[in-house]
Structure formats: C-alpha cells, structure tokens
Amino acid sequence: MVDSLNLVFSFLYQFGDAFAFLVLSACGLAVIFGMMGVINLAHGEFIMCGAYVSTRAAHAGVPMPLAILLGAACAGIAGMIVELLVIRRLYQRPLDTIVATWGISMIVTQGMLILLGPSMQGVGTPFGSFVVGGYSYSVYRIILMLSAVATLAVLWLMFTRTRFGLLSRATIQVPHVAEALGVNTNLVYSVTFGLGAALAGLAGGLYAPTMTLVPTMGASFMVEAFVTVVVGGADIFLGTAPAALILAVIKAGLTSWQGQLAGQIGLLIAVIIVIRILPRGISGKILRERG
C-alpha cells in the first residue's frame, strides 16, 4: 500500500517535471508561431540569453527570482530588436523567416563561443531535496512545475483580460481589418515577438540552475519545444497546454519504465502519429470543429 503510494508519487513527480519542461520550452515558440505564423529557429538562443543573463545577475548578487525575470526581460528586448531588424521584413515569407532565424541562431551561438568561451560557471540548484519512500526529490523541480502552471495562468489572463490580448487576438484573426480599425498591427507583432522571446528567456532563467551553461544549451530545449508546438498546433491554450499534458504522460511513463532515451523516442513517435492524423495539431482540430 505504502509502496504503491510511493510509486504514484514518483510517477506524478516525473509527470510534473516533464510537463513543466514541455510547457516552459514551448510557450515562447507557440506564441510566436500561433500569433505570427513565424517558425523561430532562434528560439533556443533566446533561452540561452535568459540563462546567461540570469546567471550573471545571480553571480552579481541579484536575488534568484529577480535575476530570472531580468533574464526574461533581456531576451524579450533582444526579441523586439530582432523583430524590428529582420522578421518585420519577412512577413508573408515563412520559408525566409526559417532561414533567417536559423542564421541568427548560428551567429549567436558562435559569437557567444568567441566572446564568453565554451562554458560559464553556473549557480547550483537551490533548495536541496526531500525524501519520499526512500527516494529523494529536488525541491527546485517542484518550483519549476509551479512556475509552468503560473506562466500558463498569466498568459491566459494576458490574452483574455487585457487590451493587448484583445488587440492581438483581433490582429491574428483578420490583420487588415484590425489595422483599418486603428490597431497599430506592427506594434502588436513587435510586442508579440518580444513576448515569445521573453518566455524563452524565462525558460532559460528557470532551468539555468539545473544545467551546464554552454552557448549551444538552447538546442537541448528544441526537441521538446517543437514536438509540443507541432502536436498542439497554433493555439497556446487549446493546443500547447493539452499537448504538454499528453506528451508529459507519454514521456514520464516511458522514462520511468525504460529510461530517458525511451522517453525521448516516445515523444518523437507521438509527434509522427499526430502529424498523420491531426496535421494542424490538437487546436487546429478543435477550432475547425467549432467552425
């Protein structure tokens, strides 16, 4: 009895950990893809930016939560600059944005390698661990799970309860009419891209204490981010969140049964199946049925 409770707790922890990583990796990518149709291959570099800035700030004595938010803010500002200089010129040319953001990604990783060297001293994972049924679990991982849920909640409030949310939803649905009604759609796109980049930076800042800081660290988020966005489709709440739930069950199940590699393979198989039966993802299916 106690044993099976321990097993349930262990699975829930694995599931929550996988869910948090999927949500936090993907939501920035999902905002930019869902709102602007831009596939941002530099997503990982905004994550890296958040991780580096927050770690630097923490080393300089800034308290952790503030350092993480600072990392997100810097990534967001970098995102708005990239939007202004590059992405804005490439709307309605999706293939060109893929190539351009891929180029930015390579320039940034190589540039960081030259400027800051192959790795940066991290900050250790805070808060230590707790023990359930003879196994020890990280407290910080629980904080990451709560952060993922809080991020979804804040995004939901932002898109449904604020003027920015209203105007940004109008802009995705019928851009030319939003513009003709007095909405500065260029500004909406710029802020949206900045928001997506800031969410990536937030993921980087949150996970920085748990990993080695190298210029290519963004790549280790990319598989989860893309798998979640492809399975979820263009809508964060109807797509990304449910996709992360389903994928987290698959990943946690396979990982606790057969180990890390099986979890990764399970995600890739899931995405191949979903592309076959739901080419526009979960949210594409829901939205089409709603008409």
């Binding site: 105007l167 009419v177 003709a180 939205l287």
Partner: peptide, 22 residues
C-alpha cells in the same frame, strides 16, 4: 469592409471593443 470581416473567433462584445481603437 465588403463581406463584413468580423473577428470570427471573438465574441460579439469583444468585436465591439476592438472598434474603440478608432
């Protein structure tokens, strides 16, 4: 516009509120 072009996945009230941008 011709053909109306309301924002289809927003509520009637939300459509009206977008018009305040004018």
């Amino acid at each position: 516009p011709q053909g109306r072009d309301v924002f289809p996945r927003m509520t009637v009230l939300e459509n009206l509120l977008v018009g305040q941008s004018i």
